Simulated scan of single mutants.
Amino acid sequence: MTTDRSISAAQEYSAHNYHPLPVVVASAEGAWMTDVEGRRYLDMLAGYSALNFGHGYRPLIEAAKAQLDRVTLTSRAFHHDRFADFCTELAQLCGMEMVLPMNTGAEAVETAVKTARKWGYQVKGVPDGKAKIIVAENNFHGRTTTIISFSTDPEARADFGPYTPGFEIVPYGDLAAIEAAMDENTVAVLLEPIQGEAGVLVPPPGYLTGVRELTRERNVLFMADEIQSGLGRTGRTFACEHEGVVPDLYLLGKALGGGVVPVSAVVSSREVLGVYRPGEHGSTFGGNPLACAVALEVIAQLRSGEFQRRAEELGDHLHRELGLLVGGGGVEAVRGRGLWAGVDIVPTHGTGREISERLLERGVLVKDTHGSTIRIAPPLVISKEDLDWGLEQLRTVLQG
């Protein structure tokens, strides 16, 4: 099917919940994707960090193939021979004690919300139905009804009420606002260590450290949504590590499935995740054999530290080059860490969508957010030469 026919059919038969760029991908390898007409594109988005290891990364593909020939699903009604290893290895990678596996990032966030409330009632002694979770403005934690209830993005939230209560929204990066919002019924603070959808917003130095100290003092859980920022993207296994912080709960997804299958998890201590009893929470596909096999290989790759080092080194280069565009190069500001950047385009040069479309024409794939911003997040396997080529296309587009 040609590009035009495929796009036309998608517009006719699929709900318009996304506004994709006009490219139809047929195959991919490493940091490159090829469309149905044979044109190649440099992937500078990596599935919003789901493809940290790139497309078709052989160790992950081989792990999936081997498991496909054995068993793919048992449900949690039975044990399977990959589950214990997955939970053990992921808990150790995180420096935690227990794992609750799910499928998507939104499910991990929903699980964390339920966990914090249950912990609040059973361990902290909050009165039933009074648990409060503090969240940040401009957050993006998913699109379920509960999650969009504490979103400040009108596109995500409008016309989906009534909304779930129990959340208080404060400005991101403002420690004093978190402290002021806390009361005896506060059970958790839920934050992205770096806000991805908001434009790759990095909080001020010391913010995460302050949140960790404050939550510990007040007997409140610190829940770090590392679904986009975690597993090597920022130059560390977890973005929280840049401030030497270990939260009470890690929320993981995207890259945990290596771009092969959806895998997510909440990882925490025995005190926190130990509040669950059989039947109180679950998922038919959560922790399935295929997911565990792929995720185990992801964990093995991360243990070497190679991808974290690549993200740090290439990320330093990325930010130096992008910084040269600030001012006279068509860029107002650049934010981010590691191989992850939010680039604010000078309005006279075009919207984020328009810049993304012009880059598409030159063989580079990025995605816009919030009108004037483009996000750059290539696979961690990208070569320096390919990264430089992609940046050269951006410079050319902004000069045009």
Rank of each mutant, 00 (worst) to 15 (best):
His319Asn: 03
Val267Ile: 12
Asp4Phe: 02
Val331Ser: 06
Gly328Asp: 14
Pro278Gln: 13
Gly56Gln: 14
Val334Ser: 07
Tyr172Lys: 03
Gln301Tyr: 04
His319Ala: 06
Tyr250Asp: 09
Trp340Ser: 14
Trp119Gln: 02
Thr348Ser: 15
Met96Ile: 03
Glu312Phe: 10
Phe307Asp: 14
Thr237Met: 13
Leu60Arg: 03
Glu107Lys: 01
Gly199Gln: 06
Ile134Phe: 00
Cys87Ala: 15
Gly54Tyr: 07
Gly328Arg: 10
Gly166Asn: 01
Trp32Leu: 13
Ala198Met: 14
Met98Tyr: 00
Arg310Asn: 14
Asn288Pro: 05
Ala180Tyr: 02
Gln301Cys: 11
His317Gly: 02
Val36Ile: 12
Val187Cys: 08
Pro171Val: 06
Ala295Glu: 08
Gly30His: 04
Thr351Gly: 13
Tyr48Glu: 13
Arg337Pro: 04
Thr186Arg: 01
Pro22Leu: 10
Gly350Asn: 11
His79Glu: 15
Val71Asp: 04
Thr348Trp: 14
Pro127Asp: 11
Ile134Ala: 01
Leu365Ile: 12
Val331Ile: 09
Val261Thr: 12
Gly329Ala: 10
Tyr276His: 10
Leu290Trp: 07
Met182Gln: 08
Gln393Trp: 05
Pro171Tyr: 06
Val298Asp: 03
Leu175Lys: 05
Ile376Asp: 12
Glu312Asp: 11
Arg216Asp: 15
Leu252Pro: 08
Glu241Leu: 08
Pro289Glu: 13
Ala333Asn: 11
Tyr163Trp: 08
Arg310Phe: 06
Ile345Cys: 09
Leu360Gly: 07
Ser75Gly: 07
Trp389Lys: 08
Ile133Val: 02
Lys254Leu: 12
Ala106Leu: 00
Ala300Lys: 14
Phe83Leu: 15
Ala31Tyr: 09
Cys240Tyr: 01
Gly30Ser: 06
Ser356Asn: 11
Pro247Tyr: 10
Pro162Gly: 11
Gly125Gln: 07
Glu89Leu: 08
Gly161Pro: 05
Pro193Asn: 14
Phe53Gly: 10
Pro22Gln: 07
Ala293Arg: 04
Gly120Val: 01
Arg335Glu: 13
Thr215Arg: 04
Leu42Gln: 10
Leu45Lys: 06
Asn103Pro: 00
Thr215His: 04
Arg157Tyr: 04
Glu332Tyr: 02
His141Ala: 11
Phe53Trp: 10
Val397His: 03
Gly161Thr: 01
Gly199Ala: 09
Glu332Gln: 10
Lys130Glu: 15
Ala108Asp: 04
Arg233Val: 09
Glu12Leu: 14
Pro101Arg: 09
Thr348Glu: 15
Glu280Gly: 08
Gly279Glu: 14
Gly371Trp: 08
Asn52Gly: 15
Gly129Met: 05
Val266Pro: 02
Leu359Asn: 03
Lys114Ile: 04
Ala188Trp: 02
Thr74Leu: 12
Asn52Lys: 05
Trp389His: 12
Lys124Ser: 13
Leu100Met: 10
Phe150Trp: 05
Ala108Val: 00
His79Ser: 15
Leu73Ser: 11
Val123Leu: 03
Asn138Thr: 07
Thr348Met: 15
Ile148Met: 01
Glu97Ala: 12
His79Val: 06
Gly129Arg: 06
Leu302Lys: 05
Glu385Pro: 00
Gly259Ile: 03
Trp119Pro: 04
Trp119Phe: 12
Tyr276Phe: 15
Gly142Ile: 00
